[in-house]
Write a protein that binds this DNA or RNA. Structure first.
Lengths: 145, 145
DNA sequence: CTAAAACCTGACGTTGACGTCAGAGGCAAG
DNA sequence: CTTGCCTCTGACGTCAACGTCAGGTTTTAG
């Protein structure tokens, strides 16, 4: 497929896809006239790249770790980087949970203080499904000490 | 205390503290000669600011939400923003967990392929530790309903 | 065949939270 | 007094992941 279609399927911009190629994260075949062509598997790869970007990894880190994800093999260096990035993400999750709990506390306090107001609606929004757990993370981290 | 001491106590740079004042997040008393002086409570406030920055909030959002945290009161607009930011953080946590699990899987696969390494057991143990997260959050979600 | 739509390669612009440098003034100690 | 450290106000630099514009070529629809 061509770049526009890939952009549409993945939800990322054409510019971003060209940027990924520039960063050597997303190789592209070229037609005679120079247009990029991607296999279907590129969709999955772009999603993975996006996921890692969203997790705070830099291009350089992704570039180093993509072969591990692809082939399941790793050098000692990339293994160290994998573990380092995972640990960083765990710390980031802890920070986010702490911040969220802080906001939750403020929300709860404000809801209580304004309980006379006709606002029982916040609780409805709060029920949006999610699945994050500080407890499991702490358990996981202490398990490998 | 003066700015250098506050920087030392909070672990943030002097430049950052001046930036916070510029963003109106951290008011400072001025001595006759123009030097900034902070009360002890500033330490706590800087930590809060850092926590919110780390959670991905922008200066503008923090500026709007700090009064709520301080006084526990909020306008309808700031309440909406509180909830919006909390929800965004929850989504971000979910993304981070997914990315972490992906890295964990790669780490586990690489450890298995290099099973001569003695770390395989630890990873096996860690794998048994997950899958108990939904309960905690379900409890959180229903606790205040 | 033609016009619109999609694609190409540069290359400069954006945004936020600071880093860093320059030049000047303030503050306790010897 | 002066040495040395801290502080001040601008103001420009940084970095990353793109956005956006310009000017030209290719593909596709009618």
């Amino acid at each position: 497929m061509r770049i526009g279609e890939l952009a549409e399927k993945t939800g990322v911009s054409v510019r971003a896809l060209r940027y990924y190629e520039e960063q050597q994260l997303l190789p592209a075949l070229r037609s005679e006239s120079g247009q990029r062509h991607y296999p279907d598997s590129a969709v999955e790869r772009v999603n993975l790249i996006q996921q890692l970007y969203a997790a705070g990894l830099a291009s350089k880190a992704i570039l180093e770790l993509l072969p591990c994800v692809d082939a399941g093999v790793s050098t000692p260096e990339s293994m160290a980087r994998l573990v380092a990035e995972r640990d960083r993400i765990n710390l980031q999750i802890d920070g986010l949970i702490a911040a969220r709990d802080r906001l939750d506390a403020v929300i709860a306090a404000a809801s209580d203080s304004a309980s006379s107001c006709s606002s029982a609606r916040v609780d409805a929004q709060r029920r949006t499904a999610r699945c994050s757990s500080a407890r499991v993370d702490a358990q996981r981290r202490t398990a490998r000490s």
